[in-house]
């Protein structure tokens, strides 16, 4: 059923690692987000330096008040973000961000293969139709995970504070969640592109969906503080589940039941869309 899968995946990866600029370009964006957005939106500072309000009070009162506010602020941060450090919160969100962006662009490659004739050649060989889409899914997953690993490394350098008991198993767990997220997302975007001959329309789909998908998730801000309609969208957005799993494992004291829910949702999401992708490729690749 998946004859030729590895050969085709290998081709995709070869095209990628032979041009290191591509890797560089794709990780620059999330790094900029972390460095600019993550560092500039220093939400914790709102509470730790509230000197503006207490300026006119006697020094003793002011000091006491500052202390209280600072403790209170920490609690608010903890309650909202699960950590007192917003940078760590959003840096973990960037792992889902890079997975989302890489998976989205995978749809483009099938459009190019069709336009450049390569797809026609593959279709005349005994390669299984499902392999054609799955090879692109897998190369997209591999690229996503490698990029996510680099982003995680850069985040640590920029000051990501890991939770108390982070072990290698936790890190593997994070990548398992990102694997499932990337599998489902790539399958969706490749399915959209299966019949398309126009990369312009594929670009339009990407531009239309990327930021809404990112903002309607917990990647940058927690779901709890969102209005109800947005909450509804964010709670079926697979990016929320991937990000939550990563935060549970890297930042928080892991809550097993939530973690299970995250994996179950991501697993179902990946299985459903991979199956749809394979079925569509049987139907749509040859007419």
């Amino acid at each position: 059923m998946f004859h030729g899968l590895w050969a085709l995946t290998n081709r995709e990866l070869k095209k990628w690692y032979k041009v290191p600029v591509l890797l560089l370009m794709s990780i620059v964006q999330p790094i900029l987000w972390m460095a600019l957005f993550g560092r500039a939106m220093n939400i914790g500072a709102l509470f730790s330096n509230p000197g503006v309000i207490t300026g006119n009070l006697p020094p003793q009162v002011s000091q006491q008040l500052n202390q209280t506010l600072s403790i209170l602020g920490n609690q608010i941060m903890e309650k909202t973000f699960g950590t007192s450090d917003y940078f760590s919160f959003m840096a973990v969100g960037m792992l889902s961000f890079i997975v989302l962006f890489t998976s989205m662009t995978s749809g483009m490659s099938i459009v190019w293969d069709r336009r450049l004739g390569f797809l026609n050649k593959v279709l005349t060989t005994p390669v299984a139709r499902g392999s054609i889409i799955m090879s692109k899914v897998f190369s997209s997953i591999i690229r996503s995970l490698i990029q996510a690993a680099i982003i995680l490394g850069v985040a640590l350098l920029l000051g990501l504070r890991l939770g108390p008991a982070v072990s290698l198993i936790n890190v593997l767990g994070v990548f398992a969640a990102l694997f499932l997220l990337s599998l489902g997302l790539s399958a969706i975007f490749l399915s959209i592109a299966l019949r398309s001959t126009s990369w312009e329309s594929q670009m339009a789909v990407m531009n239309l969906l990327n930021l809404p998908l990112l903002f309607a998730s917990n990647a940058l801000f927690p779901i709890n503080s969102m209005p109800d309609w947005l909450k509804a969208v964010a709670s079926i957005n697979p990016i929320s589940y991937g990000t939550d799993a990563a935060r549970q494992l890297l930042l928080y004291q892991p809550d097993m039941s939530r973690l299970m829910l995250d994996y179950a949702f991501l697993g179902g999401f990946a299985a459903i869309f991979a199956t749809i992708g394979i079925i569509l490729s049987w139907r749509l690749l040859s007419r």
């Binding site: 590895w6 050969a7 095209k15 390569f118 005994p126």
Partner: peptide
């Protein structure tokens, strides 16, 4: 069967040799 289509179908980013080996892989 073997097929030599009207348009060029080789992958431009790979070498001729890599293309041929890829074709062979596709036939198993």
């Amino acid at each position: 069967i073997g097929v030599v289509p009207q348009e060029y179908t080789a992958d431009e980013d790979l070498t001729g040799y890599e293309n041929l080996i890829l074709c062979a892989d596709l036939y198993g």
